[in-house]
Design a protein around this nucleic acid. Sequence first.
DNA 1: GTCGCTGCAAAGTCTTTGCAGAGAG
DNA 2: CTCTCTGCAAAGACTTTGCAGCGAC
Lengths: 164, 164
Amino acid sequence: MENIGKMGNITTNFNDKTIKYKQLLEDFKSLLKINNLKFTIQREVILETLYNSDEHLTPESLHNLIQEKFPDLKTGIATVYRTLSLLEESDMVTSLSFGAQGKKYELGAKHHHDHFICKVCGTITEFVDAQIEERQHKIAEELGFDMQDHSMQIYGICKNCQNK
Amino acid sequence: MENIGKMGNITTNFNDKTIKYKQLLEDFKSLLKINNLKFTIQREVILETLYNSDEHLTPESLHNLIQEKFPDLKTGIATVYRTLSLLEESDMVTSLSFGAQGKKYELGAKHHHDHFICKVCGTITEFVDAQIEERQHKIAEELGFDMQDHSMQIYGICKNCQNK
DNA sequence: GTCGCTGCAAAGTCTTTGCAGAGAG
DNA sequence: CTCTCTGCAAAGACTTTGCAGCGAC
């Protein structure tokens, strides 16, 4: 996938992964160990597939990807759901929902960004805006809050769907 | 699991409704007439209940509210779903999700609002920041996105809890 | 009176759960 | 070995749909 680069001072399409898979995997293993859970091939495959996808995946699309890439594993959809819940509880992935369609997941640790969500086609476009980031910190400061994290979604209709 | 609506300690910086109900109702009636649809008591009650709620409502909670307030009507949940879809298609309401399961609806004509959520005590403070609003519109414009709504949450620890 | 609307219940979707065998530690 | 995990299928939760009578216009 090509890097679109910069549009104004909005950065889109990050392809540089800020977190290496190996480290992510280690984090996952630690998490499992701490909670007395087991490291299984299915869990690894789910993490890896999430990592290698640049899209926000539904449980179903993730399951399909895994079946394509690891046809011998016969990973069940139930395991995908169970693992995604586990990862979400541990803040390793975040989920977004919107419109008529279901929930979509992404690795939270990859990089920080905000989302544009098209209510028609469900496409999620990522962006980062330095001004907004900065302003958020300022607001938190003004209100005396210790800001730890944030999540922002903008809902609307994407260029493509407007033309239909 | 953000039960945003169910917490009693919400601080809000604006309580004035920017759109009068009467006007909203007229808009709704026009919409119906244009599309050869009928204005029914159920549809009015749904609009009114949405208007009078300051929360994002799920179809179920909206249905419950209506049953409480208009017990004689026996409005069916199916009608609530159907009316919400109608209103959403017509851009009179928008649906969002704060991450918990289920879709939540609110009147789109009301104001935008952002949230600061304290991870310790669960207090939710709503705020609006003109700079962020403006910046969001600019970003949407640059990306060719028809922005309809947004939702932003900042997570952290509030002043009170920091002092403990 | 016509034709859309409504409530009900049944049918779809999407997600979770129970279970018995498989497998990690 | 022990105890968790997994796939499967069944159950649950949430939405949509079909239908026959009701009601807005």
